[in-house]
Amino acid sequence: MHHSRLSTLVIDCQTGDLSDAVEFWSLALGKNVESYDEDGDGKYARLHTENDEPVVLLQKVTHDSRVHLDIETDDIEAEADRLERLGAKRVNKVQDRWWVMEAPSGHRFCVVRQQRKPFGPHLNTWT
């Protein structure tokens, strides 16, 4: 048995400087900036969301700008297996920390480790 839920809306930004994108999305979504540099490497910024809302993360990328979803889980391999059975494909495992997946519709998304503890009210239990 494992658990998963929608975790994060990731705004992928093809930009040299993430701060302008952070300012725009903060104002557009009415969310304060929680961190301009989430991991200290200049690649991630986070907007403030409440515990029952998805995280809104901005990510500096080299590919075209887009939005993708993260699904958080307490068992990354079991969740990736479950999603494969639904028709998704594994695309790339990143540093043994998450899977980039592709839905049958062609959309990319990630399966990541649990981001918030506890999971919260919108938890799915899978067997």
Rank of each mutant, 00 (worst) to 15 (best):
D52P: 01
Q115M: 07
V67D: 00
P118K: 03
D74V: 06
F109Q: 06
L47I: 09
M1K: 15
K31M: 12
L6F: 12
Y44V: 05
H2N: 12
E23H: 11
E77C: 06
E23I: 13
L123K: 15
I76G: 01
A78T: 12
V100M: 11
N51K: 12
Y44K: 10
W126Y: 15
D20C: 08
P118C: 04
S35A: 04
L27I: 09
Q95S: 08
G87D: 03
I71K: 07
R108Q: 13
F119W: 12
R66Q: 15
V56G: 00
D75K: 09
N32E: 15
G106P: 07
T8K: 00
S35Q: 01
A80N: 07
R46A: 13
L57Y: 01
P54D: 04
P54Y: 02
T49C: 11
D12K: 14
R97L: 14
M101P: 04
G16V: 01
R46K: 14
P121C: 05
Q59C: 11
R66N: 15
N51S: 14
V94W: 09
V100I: 15
E50A: 10
H122V: 13
H2K: 12
L9W: 12
S19L: 14
S105M: 03
K43C: 10
A45D: 03
G120T: 01
K60A: 08
V94F: 14
E102W: 01
P54C: 11
A103K: 00
G16T: 09
C110Q: 09
L6G: 05
R90N: 05
G16D: 15
E84W: 06
L29W: 02
M1L: 11
